[in-house]
Design a protein around this nucleic acid. Structure first.
Length: 995
DNA sequence: GCAAGGTC
């Protein structure tokens, strides 16, 4: 009772202004929704702000209660509603088919649309917040004051603004959850920091895109290449797990490459009676000041000097000084993990699991902390008092309380401004097993940290023998202090006799010994955590998880003495990427990102620029990895045997491309996909909501998305494609291999492929910026649109509209061959020899007819062979080629003379250029426009003097060379033969006179 | 089936 009263008095003394702040509940009319990052924080903050007068009720989530109390702030009486989340509420993921491994190319994940949505088990928390905010006028964010906390704060804001756009928003800034700190936060309310939150968005997006792309690529490929070993393995990549693996591999390699060296040294021993005791001898060993020599002969020479008579050692210096052994610094998570692993042999994952359990049971403080500084107002005395009951360290605790100044912790320099160092919060001696060990470690560490450094006295004696110097040290421990409670540190006393400067003695022995350097040992878990911590890989809360991941993935394994050894898969992956040319397992990439994230927080970098930079960087690496993937196979085949041959384009069963274009109907990406019958189709990623698709004809042998983008087609970006067509099924004037746009601007290709994308009414969305709100490479990233746009991801606002449009697109989608209604020439279109309306095309080839329009049979293969220049007179219902007899044919100017070329079929000849290597490369020629097997074989060089052949038909006969005009020219079209024996013209080898 | 970050 007395203690309770004292507590109250003390609180009032500490916080006199707040006494008046606690008002009767009914007095408040201004309602404020307070949201903390976790229930524990919400409860503690409520307890402190309310002076322990809060009321508790249930929300939708059984883990996240609602606390109510009255409080005076913002110059008014406030009715405070406090609830909490459980960490992040939202999570990024890909949209639609991008989530499916087999439905998109991993490369497309660098651009694929992503969205934030509520994590499934967080729905109840969201419902609570949505319900509570309705009756509130203000929102006060109490998430942890770190980067992630700021981002979580904006998740809360998004939800609340969605329900109540006019809500007033405040941010509580606090460095620890203490009465002083939380009350101060209420007196100096701030605004949430968008830049810090943006930095987290950037990290989240990059982690998702890079992790998913590389994981799918590695897994899909290597499962096929090494089916016997890896068929069921998930081969993941992550920006934290890979550097963690890299540390293990690096140490392993250092050991493998280590070359042991022999060395030699000299050691002097001096044995003398211990005090007055006759039978107790004391041996003092003096170490060589040179340490060791790697030259045996040199060591031998010096050793001989030492043993050369009279071989008397002279004491040249005696130095005596106080020595301290420092008590441990207040415990942060990384230290707990390392100590537990080293001293208790409990791995980090298990340690954190136990620590979390102890925390939830109230035995220890929050175990995920980067703080090693105790807050000034923490009641250390009470915490130590608790421990005085303990049978083992109870007495030590009592002595600690009786020290001058009481408990004085040794603080470090880091703080996460959210949690205090790890310390016991409640006495217990009923725990068992590892739980008891972890509690003991935390408690002993806390008591040791609050005690005093150990004190000792060190004496160093230096002697000279044969010109060489040697020294010996002795240690006398004066006060063990913290060491009494801290068995994890050792500080051994070492007694040496008294020596005085000027003393001389005859050494008992002067030995030359031999040794060899040894390889660095494999990493322990504690070493690994230290390296991760040093290089900023992961956080205190995730170190253990990353280590666990690389163990689960079989990248590493543990030796009998619990050291990390890389497995074959881990070694192969690291070596494979090194062979490709990228040090994927080095921590630098992550460190560079961390540096950029700091710049975003500081306002020194633009989040979109950082995002673009890193995505572009990783995309380059990824493309390189794709193109050199066989190197990965090669590296792994060292361990897994011969690699199975796989088509490097085949990354997954459906053979899918990167984004070809935005869907004109719904705005989502359209990709090229292989059909079951081996043909190709262009398909919308919005399937099945959007069924916009186009099926390509059999004449398409291969089609790949090119990097180049069409400058005409909308909505942008519409990529060109690298096409390979079956020359037997296309008009002969048409290049079978080309880079072309199939977005609609090129009517030739559009009509030949019979492809047209249908746009719905919603096409305009691509121009109003909604579709790409979350795509990194569009300059309208969600953050720039304010929190309202972010919210649309939760409620499906902006994107919902797109989905509706998808539905309409489904109905309107057409894959039919385009007609010419939009050309305005419908009435002038002739019928071909098949009796159907011809199609109008434009000459694409560079040459005299470039840009000219013409009609041809509409069938995708050659059809009937009908051809007519668009500016030629049209004869309707023309079922013969008579219309074409009037045509002008191709015309060209050579030597200033214009002429027309017509082939023997009386068709206008086509103008082409020789591409094949050889003497005629670059020459242009005219040839029959029909497919080779049906044509007349007409051929004529364009640079020959054709002026005398004004009549095409008569000239044709002289220039006929058969069907094969370029690759295998026939005798009539050739130059005179050149003999392969004498190299003279006019005859062949067979008729060579020199034969 | 993918990341890393919160949290229970």
């Amino acid at each position: 009772m007395v203690k309770l009263f004292c507590d109250k008095i003390r609180r009032l003394l500490i916080l006199p202004p707040f006494f008046k702040q606690i008002m009767p509940r009914n007095a408040s009319s201004y309602k404020v929704l307070n949201v903390a990052e976790k229930n524990d924080a919400a409860k503690r903050i409520s307890d402190m702000l309310s002076g322990h007068q809060f009321q508790r009720r249930e929300g939708f989530s059984k883990f996240n209660k609602i606390y109510e109390f009255d409080y005076y702030m913002l110059n008014k009486h406030c009715q405070m509603i406090m609830t909490s989340l459980s960490g992040h509420l939202l999570n990024y993921d890909f949209v639609g088919n991008y989530r499916k491994w087999s439905s998109c190319h991993p490369l497309s994940l660098f651009d694929a649309e992503i969205e934030k949505s509520v994590t499934e088990n967080m729905n109840n928390i969201k419902k609570t917040i949505e319900k509570e905010i309705r009756s509130c006028q203000a929102l006060l964010i109490w998430t942890d004051c770190d980067r992630e906390g700021e981002n979580i704060g904006f998740e809360i804001i998004d939800i609340c603004q969605n329900v109540k756009p006019s809500i007033s928003i405040y941010r509580a800034k606090f460095s620890e959850i203490t009465e002083r700190s939380v009350n101060n936060a209420c007196r100096s309310l701030a605004q949430p920091d968008r830049r810090t939150s943006d930095a987290v968005d950037v990290r989240q997006e990059l982690d998702l895109r890079i992790g998913a792309a590389f994981t799918r690529f590695q897994t899909l490929r290597l499962q096929k290449v090494f089916p016997q070993v890896l068929s069921n393995k998930l081969i993941s990549y992550g920006s934290c797990q890979f550097p963690t693996l890299g540390f293990v591999v690096e140490r392993y390699k250092a050991r493998e490459q280590f070359q042991s060296e022999r060395f030699w040294k000299i050691e002097v021993t001096h044995t003398q009676r211990h005090g007055d005791e006759v039978d107790q001898m004391q041996v003092t060993t003096f170490s060589w000041k040179r340490g060791r020599l790697f030259d045996e002969l040199a060591c031998k020479v010096l050793h001989e000097n030492c043993i050369e008579p009279p071989a008397v050692a002279a004491v040249i210096d005696v130095n005596s000084r106080p020595r301290s052994r420092w008590r441990p610094v207040a415990m942060e998570t990384v230290e707990l993990e390392k100590l537990s692993s080293r001293k208790l042999k409990i791995n980090a994952k298990e340690t954190m699991k136990i620590a979390e359990k102890l925390y939830t049971q109230g035995y220890i403080s929050y175990p995920r902390t980067e703080t090693n500084i105790f807050p000034k107002d923490i009641d250390l005395r009470r915490l130590v008092e608790d421990q005085t009951q303990h049978p083992i360290w109870g007495d030590f605790s009592q002595r600690l309380l009786e020290l001058d100044g009481g408990p004085t912790p040794r603080n470090g320099r880091s703080t996460d401004k959210a949690h205090p160092p790890i310390h016991p919060t409640k006495f217990t001696c009923s725990l068992t097993g590892n739980e008891a060990k972890i509690y003991e470690l935390i408690t002993r560490h806390f008591l040791a940290c609050c005690h005093r450094d150990a004190q000792g006295h060190e004496t160093t004696v230096e002697v000279k023998l044969g010109g060489e110097k040697f020294s010996a040290q002795g240690l006398m421990i004066i006060a063990k202090n913290y060491l009494e409670v801290y068995p994890y540190d050792r500080w051994n006393a070492k007694v040496i006799p008294v020596y005085n400067v000027g003393d001389e003695f005859e050494p008992t022995d002067v030995k030359m010994t031999q040794g060899a350097t040894t390889a660095p040992p494999l990493l322990t878990e504690a070493d690994l955590i230290s390296l991760m911590d040093k290089h900023g890989i992961g956080t205190d809360a995730t170190h253990a998880e990353h280590i666990e991941t690389i163990k689960n993935r079989m990248y590493v394994e543990l030796t009998n003495d619990q050291r990390f050894l890389p497995g074959e898969l881990g070694l192969g992956l690291v070596e494979g990427y090194n062979m490709i040319g990228y040090q994927m397992s080095q921590p630098d990439l992550r460190a560079e990102l961390e540096a950029d994230l700091r710049k975003i927080c500081e306002g020194n970098a633009d989040k979109d620029q950082v995002l673009r930079h890193h995505i572009a960087k990783y995309r380059r690496v990824f493309e390189e990895a794709l193109s050199k993937a066989e190197k990965l196979d090669e590296a792994l085949s060292v361990y897994f045997g011969t690699a199975s041959q796989v088509n490097c384009q085949v990354l997954n069963p459906s053979e899918v491309s990167t984004s070809l274009r935005p869907c004109p109907s719904c705005g989502k990406d359209m990709i090229i996909k292989r059909k079951k019958d081996d043909g190709f189709m262009v398909s919308c990623m919005g399937f099945p909501q959007c069924r916009n698709a186009a099926f390509l004809p059999k004449s398409v042998i291969s089609i790949n998305v090119d990097e180049s983008v069409c400058g005409v087609c909308q909505p942008r970006p519409v990529h060109r494609v690298r096409l390979k067509l079956d020359s037997r099924n296309i008009p002969s004037y048409f290049d079978s291999e080309q880079v072309a746009c199939i977005g609609g601007c090129d009517e030739d290709i559009t009509n030949i492929l019979g492809i047209r994308f249908k746009a719905s009414e919603g096409t305009a969305q691509s121009q109003n910026g909604q579709r790409h709100y979350s795509r990194h490479n569009q300059n309208n990233h969600r953050g720039e649109q304010g929190s309202g746009s972010r919210l649309s991801t939760i409620r499906g606002g902006g994107r919902g509209a797109a989905r509706k449009r998808s539905a309409s697109g489904k109905r309107k989608m057409s894959t039919s061959v385009a007609n010419n209604a939009d050309t305005g020439l419908e009435n002038d279109i002739p019928e071909c020899n098949c009796g159907v309306r011809a199609i109008e095309l434009t000459v694409r080839k560079e040459g005299p007819n470039h840009g000219q329009r013409f009609f041809k049979c509409s069938k995708t293969n050659r059809g009937c062979g009908f051809f007519l220049w668009a500016d030629a007179p049209v004869r309707r219902n023309n079922r013969s080629t008579s219309a074409l007899t009037e045509n002008q044919g191709h015309s060209s100017t050579t030597s200033g003379v214009t002429y027309s070329a017509t082939c023997r079929c009386s068709l206008p000849a086509v103008h082409r250029t020789v591409h094949r290597e050889g003497t005629n490369k670059g020459r242009s020629f005219y040839a029959c426009s029909k497919p080779r097997e049906n044509g007349c074989g007409y051929f004529e060089w364009a640079d020959q003097d054709n002026s005398k052949n004004s009549a095409g038909a008569s000239r044709n006969k002289e220039n006929l060379i058969g069907n094969d005009t370029v690759s295998r020219p026939s005798a009539r079209g050739r130059k005179p033969p050149t003999c392969s024996l004498c190299h003279e013209g006019g005859h062949t080898r067979r008729g060579c006179p020199k034969k």
